[in-house]
Design a binder for these strands. Structure first.
Lengths: 240, 240
DNA sequence: CCTAGATAGTGTCTCAGTGACACTTATGCA
DNA sequence: TGCATAAGTGTCACTGAGACACTATCTAGG
């Protein structure tokens, strides 16, 4: 129990009362694509769970922070690095990895469809977007992680500006509402949705319109620099 | 980078692409005692930060879950094991421990003043309750952990039954309100507080009264078995 | 035993935010 | 030019929250 590890490469020369544990990060990368909430899964090449789908993840390097590790995984899987990333929860059940004890810190990322020009085939061969309502069997406890991520996103969408992360520079209010509906998995009332946007003073018209087929063209909007104190009075916050 | 660790005691024989990291848990143990929100800190005997105050914590054993480890620390520090415990956040900055890389999973616990008969001196010599508004210098990033815990508790107190955890079997509404006020660090309106309790149907009178000095004696209450669906309709939840 | 002091307990009004709901406006295309 | 399509807009009713003051019941001391 109290042995030391003379060949241990970097970590904690003094913190040797107990064996160190492998630490990984796994990242739940979400986007709205083709009208659906989708998550990136990669096909595992190695045992355990070889051939099964898993969240992109990997070991934490000795010199990088947990968030850096998650961001590295994010970039490796999607090419996009400058996106919203938040720590979710840490999974450490002793039997969660059949190889032995592995502790995994789960993160979730929201990438805007237009900042992430990758469609499934642009990811490395074994990575794909999956609709969260139609998932393959997933390795480890990764389904739990996804579940936690979905709950977190849905909750924070309601009282933070988290939804901004998924929109392009300019957008129509209809598109914004659609994005919210897709994530929350329920329909919203157009007028109530807009009333709230106005109350919170979140968006401003850019002064241009976009015509998309027949029908009245839609005003284009962008997000305003938010007034944090005004938002807080209304029970609304920034995502972090 | 790809070396293996033949003498590694238990964890992950296959997960050896990167060196394992020491993993600890640190537990923010909160209670309301003597009219103040208090936290347990222990005096460190070893370097680094020897002589400074820190949250109770320690290394995760290879065979126990993270929560078990946190609960073990909790019992060691206070003697009470059957209390509310929730994972907070994981701290993994590469330089957070001067000895080297250590990843720490922070938990917070709420112990009822009556379930934890320990006053400062009943804890082991180097452990004390501290008022959260009058703290000593704390080791590592433990002040950050405490901050996160306080924010979490205050938020969840408002929309969950978390506050139950801190009350004895029976209590007066005044005591309950006082507990809320101490945690939230602001005064509440007596009538509005009681209106909300009634609306949510959270408590019931036990039919006894308690006289405490002069003044009209107070009704004693206990928490009801909550109707989860009724609560959810009112935007109220269980703590987990 | 009566009174003063102390604490418990209770109801109303106003305001803000939310959900439900239907018609008018502006465009494209046949 | 008119028809199909999508964008945009206002009201009413309800609920929950904050602000606010008096009555009821007990203890203790004269």
């Amino acid at each position: 129990m109290n042995q030391t590890h003379p060949d241990m490469p970097t970590p904690a020369p003094g913190a040797d009362r107990l064996p160190p544990l492998p630490v990984t990060v796994d990242t739940v990368i979400l986007t709205v694509l083709e009208g659906r909430l989708q998550v990136v899964l990669v096909k595992r090449l190695d045992e355990p769970f070889a051939g099964q789908w898993a969240l992109p993840g990997g070991f934490v390097h000795p010199t990088e922070s947990l968030e850096s590790a998650a961001r590295r995984e994010l970039e490796e899987a999607t090419g996009a690095g400058d996106v919203y990333l938040e720590q979710l929860y840490t999974f450490g059940a002793p039997d969660r990895d059949t190889r032995g004890r592995v502790v995994s810190v789960a993160y979730f990322a929201l990438v805007a469809a237009d900042r992430c020009p990758l469609t499934p085939h642009r990811l490395e061969a074994e990575a794909h977007w999956f609709w969260v309502k139609q998932l393959p069997t997933m390795a480890f406890d990764h389904l739990d992680m996804l579940q936690v991520a979905l709950q977190r996103v849905r909750t924070k969408l309601e009282y933070t500006t988290l939804g901004f992360q998924l929109m392009p520079e300019t957008f129509t209010l209809q598109e914004l509402q659609k994005t919210y509906e897709i994530i929350l998995d329920r329909e919203l009332d157009k007028r109530n949705f807009r009333r709230r946007l106005k109350l919170l003073d979140l968006v401003e018209a850019v002064g241009a319109k976009r015509a998309e087929g027949p029908g009245r063209p839609a005003e284009l909007y962008r997000f305003k620099d938010v007034d944090f104190f005004h938002l807080r009075e209304k029970g609304f916050f920034l995502p972090f």
